[in-house]
Design a protein around this nucleic acid. Structure first.
Length: 432
RNA sequence: GGCGCCUUGGCCGAGUGGUUAGGCACGGGUCUGCAAAACCCGGUACGCCGGUUCGACUCCGGCAGGCGCCUCCA
């Protein structure tokens, strides 16, 4: 299998199964409800783990929660810890409702403070970092490879308007920040009370989970610089290889612009989930390659929904008791997924399987992406089924006025009735 | 100023130096009491201008437009 890596700017071949394949994928800063864009790296990572495991790999996924950060302090002055705890619950609840299961670990920055301090101490000892006024900064000029991930050159960077006088160089970034008035969480450190900078937590948590080298590091494209560049610099400064393959997913866009909390154009995952349902959200993501941007509109969501219904109808139309054997055309799927995890091609393949009535393969493929529910027949409650039976009998008696009235009644109850030849003579499908 | 990405038929969206992507929507048809679903039929599209080539949507150069990043961001 091969995957495109931001670091090498080319497709990288994964080792043969069983691997291991260790993935660390950056999660959100928890200060409000996650938006649909936050869901993309989660979904891509869970799908990739699913496919890797199905391919015989030992795949593990660590997904961090940033629960100490300027944003959180700003959003809840004096009560940031409570907000972070609550927003973490929201995140777990909303991503959990996608029905993809849980990552293998969900470490929080605040639970790795001692390891963060040790990491920073080592950077200081090696001359890669310096304390200043209770802060500690990474000395970017000490790292000749700085910029290797993002392609940025330190001497070409835009000058920072709002520069801390404590820094030796404007490009230096904070590893540790002295606590300030109004910040309600802080920890003792060799440099006084304070809390970690943004980037250090990920180097530390990834290495705590996997050691100094691992296979895949993921996150949104907007994290390439500075976040991931700085993680790489920190870890390389200690002589660690850190991640080999860097996967950056494209942005979810609204009106042609990146969705983000700071732009105020974000749509919560909760909202989309409640309005369209989990299957539509997943199909929506499946339709675009993971590296490409994806536009969230009513039309793109409606198209995803239409595809969900097309697949659902296929399984509904299956002859009862007839299953087309156990054949699973896994190699057809591997041909596209092993090539940079091309899910739009996989989706096209699913449509082809549908047309060819490869039921077992299609069920298998959908299950890989958390969409196995599409193949499950809906169960109408007894009172709804009773209405459908009355309508069937009215039709048999040529009382079409009554039949149409009952169809309306079923619709009002949330069910669509379709006439079929096979017993019981009708099919009930939830109206969505 | 620097780094990178994108531009495919009404919409979404893969892909390839020469062969139908696929889906959604739309129109026509079959089926149906009427529907719905399903199935059949219906569009050779690749921003513009050059170049390379027997041949380019695919490679190279330029231009135009759009997007992301350059220490808040998934």
């Amino acid at each position: 299998m091969r995957l495109y890596s931001t670091l090498s700017r080319r497709l990288e071949e994964l080792p043969e199964p069983p691997g291991p394949i260790r993935m660390y994928v950056c999660g959100p800063t928890v200060y409000q409800r996650a938006h649909i864009g936050n869901a993309r790296p989660f979904v891509v990572a869970m799908w990739l783990r699913s496919w890797l495991r199905a391919s015989g790999y030992e795949a593990t996924l660590v997904h961090n929660i940033t629960d100490v950060n300027d944003k959180i302090y700003a959003a809840a002055p004096g009560a940031s810890a409570e907000l972070a705890a609550r927003a973490t619950e929201w995140y777990l609840e909303d991503t959990g409702d996608l029905g993809l299961g849980l990552p293998d670990a969900l470490p929080k920055a605040t639970e790795s403070i001692p390891a963060i301090i040790r990491f920073v101490e080592q950077l200081v000892e090696r001359g890669y970092a310096y304390p200043a006024g209770g802060d500690v900064y990474f000395r970017v000029t000490r790292d000749p490879g700085y910029g290797r991930l993002s392609g940025q050159r330190p001497d070409q960077m835009a000058p920072d308007e709002d520069q801390s006088p404590l820094k030796e160089d404007p490009r230096d970034f904070a590893l540790w920040k002295a606590t300030k008035p109004g910040e309600d969480t802080s920890w003792e450190s060799p440099w006084g009370r304070g809390r970690p900078g943004w980037h250090i937590e990920c180097s530390v948590m990834a290495e705590e989970a996997f050691g100094p080298a691992f296979e895949i590091h993921g996150g949104g494209l907007d994290l390439v610089f500075p976040h991931h560049e700085n993680e790489l610099a920190q870890s390389r400064a200690l002589g660690h290889d850190f991640a080999r393959i860097w996967m950056h997913n494209g942005m979810v866009e609204l009106g042609g612009e990146k969705m983000s909390k700071s732009l105020g154009n974000d749509v919560s995952l909760r909202n989309v989930l409640d309005t369209w349902g989990r299957e539509v959200v997943l199909l929506f993501f499946l339709r675009a390659h993971w590296r490409r941007p994806i536009e969230l509109t009513d039309e793109t969501l409606a198209q995803a929904k239409a595809e969900v219904e097309t697949f659902r109808n296929f399984f509904l139309d299956a002859e009862p008791g007839v299953e087309d054997g156990e054949r699973i055309l896994r190699s057809e799927l591997a041909a596209v997924l092993d090539d940079d995890f091309n899910t739009p091609e996989a989706l096209a393949l699913f449509h082809s399987w549908r047309a060819r009535e490869e039921r077992s393969s299609l069920r298998y493929g959908l299950e890989l992406f958390g969409l196995g529910s599409i193949a499950e027949p809906p169960q109408a409650p007894p009172e709804v089924a009773a209405l459908a039976e009355r309508r069937r009998d009215a039709r048999a008696a040529k009382d079409f006025a009554e039949a149409d009235r009952l169809r309306d009644e079923l619709a009002a109850a949330g069910w669509e009735v379709r006439d079929i030849a096979a017993p019981p003579g009708y099919r009930l499908v939830p109206r969505t």
